[in-house]
Design a protein around this nucleic acid. Structure first.
Lengths: 262, 262
DNA sequence: TCCGATTGTCTCTTACAAGGGACGCATGTA
DNA sequence: TACATGCGTCCCTTGTAAGAGACAATCGGA
């Protein structure tokens, strides 16, 4: 193994390493599968979440029996199961905003040909909840469920609009402020961005996540002042001023539509 | 409460009532939310899964923190959370058959105007995994995630094709054999149906779930002889012989398409 | 063929989570 | 104003689940 499991587990979690609640282990397992995005052997899973093998076997059996996980076709690998899909659909059904937001995102990318995304805060992290690829030849990075530091994104600036400074600080770690290209954002600048985005009602960032794209984002409100989600378009960084402007107009229009009934 | 919680909890689970593993409680909570299909107060949730209040509060807090559940907007109600949606999408992504099956079902209902469904076995139960409503004025019952006794359906007969008699018996309870209209199916007849469906490669049932519809189903194979799912159309019971035949042809065609790469 | 690594199962101990129950706080209604 | 009902939190006890570790079975090189 390349990861020398000797207490190197990273600093996450308490170093205790002792007894751990079963439910927590399960949550870690699910999260681990979410990051790996593929079926994985139970032994490796145990290593991955740093849990004892015997425990992992027991938990996985429970989860498989319950249908939350499934044994992958070939043999001893596990991945998410149908039950989770069904629960996920229940979530969508109970969530107007998400259901209509997905629709709207699909429409947007079809109409504009650009990559379009619906984003939300997910336990304090920026999350791409739904994305539709667009028709450009080059692939723009964006997988559903991907989590990215808030300061890297235009949506992040909108999602934090209206929050206390303290709340924002607690959601943004120092690491988050370091952009992919190595530049370090100043926290005050970021907070200023947020305030600005709030009044203008949209946000554009250029070359933050990568050097070749810019991101146009607008807020979706669940109540006056309460930003529940954002919709955004990811476009080539050299997109003209005019087209950028008209795309933002389109976005604001669609987001408003989502907001009213939300 | 209208449900007199006095040990009426149905016979499910052991009557022990004593200490229960946290994970199991969680699984019950999720299942309960899945059946209620709506946000529910924590107190009621505790009653619903027959768990102590204190325990329920603790577990719900964990689940909310993890994002598997969310507090519903108003206040003290909980329902499924974004995390479950994300995990569900992971499942879809990792499952070609489901992804393409959903697509195909949507196509079918658009082309034919009939209600179309994708069905699978889910821990021994028949489950509507995806459905698309069709354009007929009257609504045909069918919610995604709904679970129905196997003998009530055409798909059930196909999904069990190739299984041992013992396996079939273990999956079908006596209650399952009682149709909605009160008639009782003989187990032997049901098993004969299964065998017949297997050789003909499709199955039609008339007036089983309700008196006004018939159900046309065909199998989708994940490997030769292994029925992974079924696709079906739910049509008015008076649909002509010709149309029924051509719809079945269409279904078989599409199901075959799904099966090859599966 | 013989090893080393991995997989799945089992047993036993003890650290600790589940549960009982009491508390204070809001509602609602007699 | 009193009383009942439901909510959310907290504390203490003890039954039990998490974990360590041993085991047989399987696999894949060398």
């Amino acid at each position: 193994m390349q990861d020398g499991n000797a207490l190197a587990v990273s600093d996450s979690e308490k170093i205790s390493g002792s007894r751990e609640k079963g439910l927590n282990r399960v949550l870690e397992i699910l999260e681990f599968l979410h990051t790996t995005q593929r079926a994985i052997g139970i032994g490796d899973l145990a290593k991955g979440v740093n849990a004892p093998r015997s425990t992992t076997y027991t938990l996985v059996r429970s989860l498989v029996d319950a249908g939350l996980l499934e044994m992958a076709g070939d043999g001893n690998r596990v991945y998410f199961g149908k039950k989770l899909y069904l629960y996920g659909m229940d979530y969508v059904r109970g969530n107007d905003l998400l259901r209509r937001g997905r629709q709207e995102v699909d429409n947007l990318s079809r109409e504009t040909g650009e990559t379009s995304e619906l984003c939300m805060l997910q336990s304090g992290r920026y999350t791409i909840v739904h994305s539709s690829p667009g028709t450009r030849p080059f692939r723009i990075s964006s997988a559903t469920g991907l989590q990215i530091p808030l300061p890297w994104t235009a949506s992040g600036r909108l999602l934090l609009a209206g929050l206390e400074r303290a709340a924002i600080e607690s959601m943004v770690s120092d690491d988050d402020l370091v952009l992919p290209d190595g530049r370090k954002l100043r926290l005050d600048d970021f907070i200023a961005d947020i305030a600005k985005a709030r009044v203008t009602g949209y946000c554009v960032t250029s070359g933050l996540v990568d050097a070749y794209t810019k991101c146009l984002a607008v807020p979706v409100f669940s109540a006056p002042g309460k930003v529940e989600a954002t919709m955004c378009l990811v476009v080539p960084i050299d997109t003209s001023q005019e087209r950028t402007g008209s795309l933002i107009g389109l976005l604001r229009d669609r987001a408003a539509r989502l907001s009213i009934a939300g």
